[in-house]
Nucleic acid binder design. Structure first.
Lengths: 241, 241
DNA sequence: TCCCTATCTTTACATCGTAAAGATCAGATA
DNA sequence: TATCTGATCTTTACGATGTAAAGATAGGGA
């Protein structure tokens, strides 16, 4: 507290004497042996992303700033610029990390399912479980407006996420989902599944389902409500509000 | 461009001479006759909310700052503080305005419906139409994290919105929705309807449904997709080719 | 050995939210 | 009528943020 913006291992700022140089850091830095970061970090990009994840979990979306991330990584506040350009760049790369985590969680959940009902519910449940476990990351992925989907890493990760969803819907409907054309029914099925789970998750994270949950039978959990929501019988009429 | 933060009708800053006073503004301000704002605005609170709405439509969520709103209203940057406390206060009151607009649009749309199918689809369609017409306001209502629901105006407006939704579900299911208790089936129906429409809207506004829409038959609109999404059975086998 | 380029730091600036103190006005009070 | 008081608005100030630009430093090839 009270430290002036940067707190590295103190280094002589002006002197370029090679003696001080040799004393201050290892002569050659033998491939990730030192934990003390020298002037050139070596893997600052990854370090910044991990620092950003820590800041996000600790301080939430509002606390995730370029300077806070740089502070957490122990570098100057302008260091991230060289690796991510601007805040949008950092957020986009972080969102890409999130999408990859997310996709991995999905794939893992689907592998564990055996019965058809389990296979149908595994994905949406994993979706909500991930969001609840990483609300900050989910916010980066789906709440932030400052994302640049033209960045290849983010584009690919998000695309993979969508492809996984479309594929799951196709599996459930026992038909092949074409890459370049969809019937209205297919599109509606995908949009419905995605909208339902995504909407449920956002409302849940925003605390807007609290009123409903409180009025449900004692001890009804969000997962149980999700399950009921997904498996409810058709009432005969359209399902809109 | 380049004006130094505040631009009111120029006023003598130090002189308190009553002659200059009489010249600079009307003697009594006869109940909203002058458009030139005197020192005491008279209705600054409402003026700030309208200014905020303009800024939101013009510059989007990212451009909506306390200082921008004050600028738009033609007052000093600290003037909003007295009426809204802080940024959270302004956003919350603006969100309340949005919820009231939203509720009015819903009610109006339901009134126009005649057939049962129309009655079922009127609300979700109006929901999406409102969000598309006022994406900034929808963002304030559902995307912002800085909202204070303990403020009565926001709490009531949002509560009314939810009550309208629950009521519509009750009407459709032809049963009374109790105020203090819900069956799991009822809760699931409400959560499903809300999640579906809210999720669809967010995905649509974020441009995430663009891929789907592009792959659908030529000229399929978002509304048509929404309709198909709402009128098709939830689970089951493919109903078409 | 020397220079070149990528990487990181320092410095600077405009903008933002917020707090505090000063200016101004409307109406009550005398 | 004159003064006082509280509400309203402005001015000033401060720390934090994103971003640009210039300086410092290393690593690797000429």
């Amino acid at each position: 507290m009270g430290k002036s913006e940067t707190a590295r291992n103190p280094r002589t700022p002006k002197k370029t004497s090679s003696a001080a140089k040799a004393q201050a850091r290892p002569a050659r830095r033998p491939a990730a042996a030192r934990t003390e970061t020298p002037y050139h970090h070596g893997a600052l990009r990854e370090a910044l992303l991990k620092a950003a994840e820590r800041v996000l979990e600790r301080d939430g979306l509002g606390g995730l700033t370029l300077r806070a991330v740089a502070r957490e990584a122990g570098v100057s506040h302008a260091a991230p610029t060289h690796h991510f350009g601007d805040l949008t760049g950092l957020l986009s790369e972080l969102a890409a990390v999130g999408f990859r985590q997310f996709n991995a969680a999905m794939a893992s959940a689907c592998d564990d399912a055996t019965t058809p009902l389990e296979r149908a519910l595994a994905r949406p449940k994993a979706y909500v479980v991930y969001a609840q476990a990483h609300p900050g990351m989910y916010g980066i992925m789906f709440r932030t407006e400052r994302l640049d989907y033209s960045r290849p890493s983010l584009h690919e990760a998000a695309e993979a996420s969508f492809a996984g969803l479309a594929n799951a819907i196709g599996m459930m409907r026992q038909e092949q989902i074409s890459e370049d054309a969809l019937t209205l029914t297919q599109g509606a099925a995908i949009a419905r599944a995605w909208s339902m789970v995504h909407g449920f998750t956002m409302l849940l994270l925003d605390g807007r389902l609290k009123d409903i949950l409180d009025r449900l039978p004692e001890g009804t959990t969000a997962e149980r409500l999700l399950e009921a929501m997904l498996t409810a019988p058709i009432t005969g009429k359209p399902t809109g509000p």
